[in-house]
Design a protein around this nucleic acid. Sequence first.
DNA 1: GTCTATAACGGGATAGAC
DNA 2: GTCTATCCCGTTATAGAC
Lengths: 213, 213
Amino acid sequence: MTEGGTGRRGSYAKGVAKREEILERALDVVAREGYRGASVKEMADAAGLSQAGLLHYFDSKEELFTEILRKRDELDSARLGLGGDLSRGLNGPADREVRDLRADYLSVIRGNAEVPGLVHLFARLSVDAADPEHPAHRFFSTRGRNLRGFFAAVVAEGQSAGRITDRVDADTLARLFQAVADGIQLQWMLDPEVDMAATVDALFTLLTSEGNA
Amino acid sequence: MTEGGTGRRGSYAKGVAKREEILERALDVVAREGYRGASVKEMADAAGLSQAGLLHYFDSKEELFTEILRKRDELDSARLGLGGDLSRGLNGPADREVRDLRADYLSVIRGNAEVPGLVHLFARLSVDAADPEHPAHRFFSTRGRNLRGFFAAVVAEGQSAGRITDRVDADTLARLFQAVADGIQLQWMLDPEVDMAATVDALFTLLTSEGNA
DNA sequence: GTCTATAACGGGATAGAC
DNA sequence: GTCTATCCCGTTATAGAC
């Protein structure tokens, strides 16, 4: 357990188990107190470590945060029924019905409304990661590409089956979905009364062909 | 010039002209170097002031940033042909054609692609302002409400004229537009190759009734 | 009223002992 | 591997000159 798993060697994998534990605790802190106040010291305390102790496992605060999001994606990817991981790569079957995607995606979004801290963290890092030097830059690039690729595939199939309008190409529709998902989060963070799922669902309604509302 | 303009009285308006000048310079810094590295010191230098000198005109960095965005909105509001200001209130005629809105809105978005620093600043502050205590919280709340109200009005008219689908209500469509505009910015910041205007335009296409593509 | 100078505070990162 | 101590940098607050 201590040495096995993802780590290549005992000495390389500097305490994989401990890393996981820190991640869990940090996630708690973020989920509870939000991004604000989630200082390295806070998270170190939660994990029973000193600041420097924590930073021995993660090179920087930003890297730690990136890993938190990666872990969240692992769970969501499974929920979405993806055959892989958004931040690493997908290899699952893309022969999904739009109907399923709609339900599953909305389910993920409803889940987001339960973890405001994580949503806030994601939004914040999304912005910071625009800088190519940011540790999370690659993460967001890859994640976005995979997410859109997945959506585009499902959408394209729906289009050729006549269930989805072809007035806009699949790639653009995929971009549109990502944009709406990200954008509605901002509105929700500003006003938690906003129904994120309902708004995203409206986009599904818009591109569904007339007959299949 | 020094005392006139917006200021109520000479003593109240603590150097309105100077404030404006600081704003301009700060905008330069942000537009040039992006949000990152836009420290108070940097902006003070650009304005030929010390840190404390600058903070005499703006209570905090965040307030300064908020004012930068407010100023940008003033210009964009005019471009959109709004009868007022997004961050304060609208009183203009809402009898706009969707066709005009589409063209004007896309024009604003294309303009954004020319000022990456401002876009970055907007995105960053959008996230931070989720905190109700943040100086920009009210700004974003009001701005969003006004923007959506404007869109909803135009959309509703298009709906009753049969030019826009009524499968989704006007308020939700307005939310959708705001979400897409905000969300596509994130994608563009991560990869400047992204065509923001084209993506937003796709949403217009989706809700335009079949006949009027 | 406006400015310069400087100090206080907080957060992240690093060096080096154990 | 974990700690303490320290350093650096950015924001904010204050004292006092002009």
